[in-house]
Design a protein around this nucleic acid. Structure first.
Lengths: 190, 190
DNA sequence: GTTTATTGATTGACCAGTCAAACAATGCCT
DNA sequence: AGGCATTGTTTGACTGGTCAATCAATAAAC
């Protein structure tokens, strides 16, 4: 029973790591298994097929991200503080690792083919959007929705850039950019 | 001699179209050739290998984009007008087709592996950035650089979202979002 | 008749997924 | 405690299919 979840976890980690290494979903189950130190057949035994292994890896990343944000939100009082937590969550250490970024990017590509991937992506977008809107409402009223869309897109865009030019936008700078944009949005309302 | 460029063009179009159809770079030369109405061997004859065919397709998209923007800039007088042209260029009909978007997305993934792809991507980023900065300078002075980074990232982010939720952000709305962000940036300086 | 364009046939590598068998642990009976 | 069955874990060997790339041969053009 314990071996089961241990192996699954091992294989999921190896999957993310291997995607990060090659930079694409063009990764063989053999390579993943070797990285995890088990035989390829075991991966099929636990996940059924390659796609389900990828989806499990992505689900793992998404829940980790969700936990991160929720933990950060716990210590906040005002909406402004909460918005900053949400923003920082997107660029937190755990999500800004280059292998995680590569997995995200490829996840976007996978969403073109796999309806389950598309569903997961929709869940992420929906959560981010509603988090942003909820905390923007008291500060921006009616304008909360369009502002949230711009902030979310800006986060994605900065993320995408970091994926290829790490030195360009280090972690802190990425958050700072989004904060600045948020400031501008709110200032413009006055 | 003319057949050469005609076939190349045919194959490049088929490549983009096929990437758009499957939504990924996981596309066989056979499929591309069939779509172009020629034998697979011909693709190898003209492009050498698969990667070079992809790169040629991407170069084609990038030059088309560059021409679009340059043409739009021609009719503009002030920096503000030029900025709007640049923004609209990113979301122009030609670049906002779903197959072109799919190609872009996969191009980002390809840039992880292929140094030539990375080079092309850098060229695009550099051109966009310098276009933005050049026209922001008279309006924003010192702040031109960081603003340009945010605008560029916002464009990329909105583009990425449209890739999966076309109904969410129709063409006009995407430009409008970026214009709004630009307004906010400039207003905040005052 | 020579060059250019094009193809069909083929090859060699790789890879997702299967399967039956080996191996380990766990409990259960006496 | 010691054997024995049952269940879960892990693997090596294999297969069927796919695909990039090659090449020698044919058709077209000039």
């Amino acid at each position: 029973m314990s071996a089961q979840i241990q192996r699954r976890r091992q294989l999921i980690d190896a999957t993310i790591s291997e995607i990060g290494h090659t930079g694409s979903l063009d990764v063989t189950v053999g390579k993943i298994a070797k990285r995890a130190g088990v035989s390829p057949a075991l991966a099929f035994h636990y996940f059924g097929d390659k796609d389900r292994l990828f989806l499990a890896a992505m689900r793992h990343i998404l829940t980790a991200y969700g936990l991160d944000v929720r933990a950060a939100l716990r210590g906040c009082s005002g909406p402004r503080e909460r918005l900053e937590s949400i923003i920082r969550g997107g660029f937190s250490e755990a999500n800004f690792r280059s292998d995680v970024i590569a997995a995200w990017l490829n996840f976007y590509v996978l969403a073109h083919r796999s309806s389950e991937a598309q569903r997961l992506l929709t869940v992420y977008h929906g959560r981010l959007h509603s988090n942003l809107v909820h905390n923007l409402r008291p500060l921006a009223g009616e304008a909360a929705d369009p502002i949230a869309r711009r902030i979310a897109a800006l986060i994605d865009g900065l993320y995408l850039r970091y994926a290829h030019f790490p030195s360009d936008e280090p972690e802190a700078s990425a958050s700072a950019h989004v904060m600045a944009a948020l400031d501008n949005e709110l200032k413009a309302l006055a």
